Computed example of a mutant assay.
Amino acid sequence: METKIEIGEPAVKSEVKTLSRKKANLKKILTYGAFVGPALLFFLVIQIIPFLMGIYYSFTSWNGVSSVVEWVGLENYIKIFKNDPKFFDSFIFTTKFMLASVIISNLLGFGLALLLNAALKSRNLLRTVFFIPNVIGGLLLGFIWQFIFVKGFAAIGNLTDLSVFKLPWLGDETTAFWGIVIVFAWQISGYMMVIYIAALQGVDQTLLEAAKIDGASSWTLLTKIIIPLILPAFTICFFLTISMAFKIFDLNISLTGGGPFNSTQSVAINIYQEAFQNNRYGLGTAKSILFFLVVAIFTTVQVMMTKKREVEA
Rank of each mutant, 00 (worst) to 15 (best):
V301P: 00
N279W: 14
Y281E: 04
G284L: 04
V294T: 03
V303I: 14
Q302S: 13
F292C: 06
L290H: 02
Q277R: 11
I297C: 11
I289Y: 00
G284C: 08
V303N: 05
A286C: 10
V301Y: 07
K287R: 11
G282A: 12
T300G: 11
F291S: 08
Q277S: 15
V301F: 13
V301C: 10
M305G: 15
M305I: 14
G284M: 03
F298C: 11
L283E: 04
Q302H: 09
T300P: 05
A296Y: 07
V294S: 02
V301H: 07
F298I: 05
N279I: 14
S288P: 05
K287W: 03
M305N: 11
L283C: 10
F298G: 05
F298P: 06
T299C: 10
V303D: 07
V303C: 06
L293F: 08
V303Q: 06
Q302C: 06
F298K: 03
Q277K: 10
Q302F: 08
I297Y: 04
Q302I: 02
Q277C: 12
Q302N: 11
R280T: 11
R280W: 08
G282V: 12
Q302T: 12
I289N: 00
M305H: 08
K287V: 02
M304I: 13
T285L: 11
F291L: 08
A286Y: 03
N279L: 15
A296V: 06
S288D: 01
L290T: 03
T299N: 12
I289M: 05
A286H: 03
I297V: 13
K287I: 02
G282F: 12
N279Y: 15
F292A: 07
F292L: 08
L293P: 00
L290A: 04
N278F: 15
I289Q: 00
Y281P: 04
F291R: 04
A296M: 10
I289L: 06
F292R: 04
Q302D: 06
T285W: 10
A286T: 07
F291E: 06
I289R: 01
L283Q: 09
V301I: 14
V303R: 03
I297P: 00
Q277N: 14
K287H: 05
Y281F: 15
F298Q: 09
L283P: 01
T306E: 12
Q277V: 15
S288F: 01
Q277P: 10
A296R: 02
G284K: 11
M304G: 13
Q302V: 04
L283S: 07
M304V: 13
G284F: 00
M305S: 11
G282D: 11
S288H: 04
G284T: 08
Y281D: 01
Q302L: 10
T285S: 13
N278Y: 15
K287Y: 02
T306A: 13
F292W: 07
F291M: 08
Y281S: 07
M305P: 10
M304L: 13
T285D: 06
G284H: 07
N278V: 12
N279A: 15
Y281I: 10
S288Y: 02
